[in-house]
């Protein structure tokens, strides 16, 4: 029990840090749109190498809205499964402790 209380407290601190890092990054990044790092790489290749991609995406979301839909869906499915699992082992442990 003592261990669990300690772990819980540790997790609060860690999650706080997880929040702080991107927020600080937002300020340090300054006046930027925070585009993807891979997009910048593509620009580098395009200008340095005069390279033209020889293969195109099989399918691309038609626009930003559909893209963000698919991204949220990915996050939602992931979070759903992850927390289902955590709930499952929590319930299992509680049931075992009751015996």
């Amino acid at each position: 029990m003592e261990r669990n209380r300690r772990l819980k407290r540790q997790n609060y601190y860690l999650l706080l840090l997880v929040l702080i890092i991107p927020v600080v990054s937002l300020f340090l990044g300054g006046n930027s749109e925070f585009g993807g790092a891979d997009g910048m790489v593509v620009e580098l290749i395009d200008e340095a190498d005069r390279y033209t991609p020889w293969f195109d995406n099989v399918w691309a979301p038609p626009g930003g809205e559909t893209e963000s839909l698919l991204f949220s869906l990915q996050a939602a499915i992931g979070a759903g499964v992850l927390f289902y699992f955590i709930g499952y082992i929590k319930g299992k442990r509680a049931a075992a402790n009751d015996k």
Binding site: P22, V24, S25, G35, G36, G78, A79
Partner: peptide, 20 residues
């Protein structure tokens, strides 16, 4: 797999002004 899904859908702003 679920954990990987969640993390790879979160594009975090970084200090350089781009995201990853």
């Amino acid at each position: 797999v679920a954990f990987a899904f969640v993390l790879s859908s979160l594009k975090l702003p970084s200090v350089t002004g781009s995201s990853s």
